[in-house]
Nucleic acid binder design. Structure first.
Lengths: 316, 316
DNA sequence: TTGTAGGCGTTATCAG
DNA sequence: CTGATAACGCCTACAA
């Protein structure tokens, strides 16, 4: 048995002839080692988990694709979880923490983690890389959301807009960091030029096209609608633009629109937007988690900042 | 040990007081059963795998989201694999068939499976549901791709188009069924009205926006460009439209465009397209695989057909 | 270079 | 209702 195990895993100390024979027979029998048994024996699973707040959005699909590509190179499998509301978040973080033993490491996208929860997980041996949020215990990969958003707002302000709406994240406040930080950037941008923020102009859009559509509809119903709108994702911006179109309005003439992401189709819409480098974000996160498997994790967790840039097109 | 095991899994034959004590202590210790050990013991893993040809496309992101949602209800985890070329396909199907023991079942999207390979996998105890393709051994969920595509082509023909281009799947022929079937529907549509198909008008677009852009550019360079174009996905249609726009052309006046999918933003583009019910496809597949875990699989594999419909908007 | 034995953490069986 | 005990299939010493 030991020899077979070694032969199959290309370990040394096996006679070439034996190795060849073993591999041939294994092939004939379609033999594949049972990963559960192997995990049990070695204490590693050979898979990495990723948690996202939603799967069907351009950003997360792209990011997960980047992760998968890197993991494949290292022969790691990918476990995917979606945590879409607070109940699921709690369940994931403090309840059925199955993933803790099912995977060797976790990539956590923009999901809130209190310091307590962080410590708890760390104590239980969790290896985590957070994206969008940061935790005291784990390495993280972030954007400077506030600055990125300010670029968008400053641009609108420079164009002379004083009454600016914002289409935010989800309706129920899940405490996701990213929308919160973007909102902060938005508010800062207004404050900087002495514009008083009007709560009426902050409408949730759930990060979906449909949500963006509805949010813009609400904005247009206002007695004093905004002359410009910042949407926290391009997908919501698309929805907003569609709503405008269906009411015969046009960007930027009637209302200027700025998005966030630089989606594949944003160029087609001529959407002015804040570009983030999604392609590399997933890959980088995957490399970070793989790297963190090696070291003990006792050193100061790494902080990586990904770049953003304002892409000015036609809608603002 | 046995009692603890029973208590934690809510099995009968445990005194209420004992159960409560066990659960309390488990909670205090952050104890979570090791899934590898459990898998080894019971022979089931509690996870389902999904393989897709690409992750960063609207269709697959949506479909995977649907799968995840259903699996979560049944406490199954999701393993995600991408198989993007023939090398990876072979590796996945005949090489490192790790997933076979790592998961209890596999949902396979539009990935070729020869009859031999099917039999082989079946013999090795694989539980599979195929989407987009069908295999003699496994249940499958499909569209009537040919008919769906014909609807698009017939529409263009009815509008008087005689010279129709098509933006197909990938350049390297991976043998993926869906693009092949759609191409067949396309050709049938032309034949039906006696139009001779011109190979020059069949350009690969790799199912990406960028690919669609390039494909349309090629089409426009032709001595005798088409007056209408059918793209096998909305994303490619978006790219095509963008290319037209950048050359000052407009749909449908200069070239009519029809897509396939009915993407979230297609309405905004006014894209005429073949709608498929992506939302339910993933969920249905997940239910099918879960159902197939129960029965022996000896009976005739189930065939489910999902509906499509032509949505006529402005581009054609 | 090969083979033997113990253990990884569960679950299931069976005796108390 | 509870507690021993033998799998589950593999890996890692260590012995041959």
């Amino acid at each position: 048995m030991a020899t077979v195990s070694r032969a199959l895993r290309d370990l040394p100390n096996v006679a070439p002839s034996t190795r060849e024979r073993v591999q041939r027979v294994a092939q004939q029998l379609d033999y594949v080692a049972n990963p559960s048994a192997a995990s049990l024996a070695v204490g590693r699973t050979g898979s990495i988990a990723a948690v996202v707040p939603m799967l069907d959005s351009w950003y997360f699909a792209k990011a997960v694709a980047g992760i998968e590509a890197v993991l494949k190179e290292s022969n790691f499998d990918l476990l995917l979880y979606a945590v879409t509301n607070e109940r699921e978040r709690l369940q994931f973080v403090t309840g059925r923490t199955d993933w803790l033993r099912r995977s060797d490491g976790l990539i956590m996208f923009d999901i809130r983690l209190s310091d307590d929860e962080s410590k708890r997980l760390e104590a239980n041996g969790a290896k985590i890389v957070t994206i969008g949020t940061c935790s005291p215990s784990f390495p993280s990969l972030m954007l400077d959301e506030v600055t990125a958003t300010r670029a968008a707002v400053d641009h609108l302000v420079a164009k002379g807009h004083r009454r600016i709406g914002v289409i935010t994240g989800d309706a129920e406040d899940l405490g996701y960091r990213v929308p919160i930080l973007r909102l902060e950037g938005f508010r800062q941008g207004l404050e900087a030029v002495g514009i008083e923020q009007d709560p009426e102009l902050e409408i949730p859009g759930g990060f979906s096209t449909e949500g963006g559509r509805e949010a813009m509809a609400d904005l247009l119903k206002l007695d004093d609608p905004p002359t410009a709108v910042f949407a926290m994702s391009d997908e919501m911006a698309f929805g907003a633009l569609d709503q405008m179109r269906s009411q015969g309005l046009c960007a930027p003439d009637d209302i200027a629109v700025v998005g966030f992401d630089d989606n594949d189709v944003s160029e087609l819409f001529g959407l002015t937007t804040v570009r983030q480098d999604v392609d590399t974000i997933g890959a980088t996160a995957a490399r970070m988690i793989l790297a963190s498997l090696g070291n003990s994790g006792s050193d100061e967790p790494e902080r990586v900042l990904s770049k953003t840039s304002l892409i000015i097109r036609r809608t603002a």
